[in-house]
């Protein structure tokens, strides 16, 4: 995106480029990239937080321990409330999802950082994992009865085939919306900040306006980072309820 006048060049998408970490110009499937670095940092932060936080095992927790316990109980309650008791075995899975997404989102807000969750490849894998899990667990638990969730028994008989079609379409759209919602939100926030940063670079004293806007958007993005991780996780819980609980439609 190039704005010719004023010599203003804003390329908000450049920050999402994936480049090999150690130079070179080839990108194989195993080449460590800038994204790999930030994935690694996310892993390190999560490991540090959760291992150090759980190491003291104090009955009266310290700060780090409180954070790790807060995460644990937050996700645990979410799974219990949304998915039900049978969903409790997916708790570790949801714990991984939430900690990974929220850490990546928040780390991505460090200036100069890279947010893996701004890439559709990442969110698509996460969403497809959820989709496959729900489908496989659903068929495993309920057999062919899993298809019953598409047959809305509370609707008039004539409407049921149409509703079934709509339900099936919405079921298969789930991974798409699930992944685009997260990736799109994170990408858009970063791109908007980049655009304002581009304005700030050429506006002289008036650049106080875009800088203030960046500060405001940054606050909003902090919220978005946590909320999107929450949304992704709770939607996973909702989808899993279809697979493990009795279907209420």
């Amino acid at each position: 995106m190039t704005v010719a006048d004023q010599g203003l060049v804003i390329d908000p998408m450049h920050q999402f480029q994936i480049v090999p970490l150690f130079g070179g110009d080839t990108l194989t499937w195993y080449t460590p990239t800038n994204q790999t670095l930030w994935l690694g940092i996310a892993v390190a932060v999560i490991s540090l937080l959760m291992i150090v936080g759980s190491s003291s095992k104090a009955v009266i927790p310290g700060r780090t321990q409180s954070i790790s316990e807060l995460l644990y109980t937050f996700i645990h309650n979410m799974v219990e409330e949304v998915t039900g008791h049978e969903g409790a075995k997916f708790f570790p899975y949801l714990m991984v999802l939430f900690t990974f997404i929220v850490t990546s989102n928040l780390l991505g807000l460090i200036p100069g950082a890279f947010a893996p969750t701004s890439h559709i490849a990442v969110t698509a894998v996460l969403a497809l994992m959820v989709f496959l899990t729900v489908t496989l667990v659903g068929f495993y638990n309920k057999g062919i009865g899993f298809l019953g969730m598409f047959w809305v028994s509370s609707a008039p008989l004539a409407l049921r085939p149409i509703l079934a079609l709509i339900e099936i379409i919405s079921y298969f759209v789930r991974p798409l919306s699930h992944s685009i919602r997260l990736g799109g939100n994170i990408m858009a926030g970063h791109a908007v900040m980049k655009v304002f940063a581009g304005f700030a670079g050429v506006m002289g004293i008036a650049s106080i306006v875009p800088i203030a806007a960046i500060a405001a958007i940054y606050g909003l993005e902090l919220l978005v980072a946590v909320v999107q991780a929450y949304v992704f996780t709770i939607l996973t819980c909702v989808y899993l309820r279809d697979a493990v609980g009795e279907a209420h439609h």
């Binding site: 990108l27 499937w29 994204q35 994935l39």
Partner: peptide, 10 residues
């Protein structure tokens, strides 16, 4: 590349 490293991280 992205998917490989993501899976490793997860």
């Amino acid at each position: 590349n992205q998917i490989f490293w993501l899976v490793v991280a997860l």
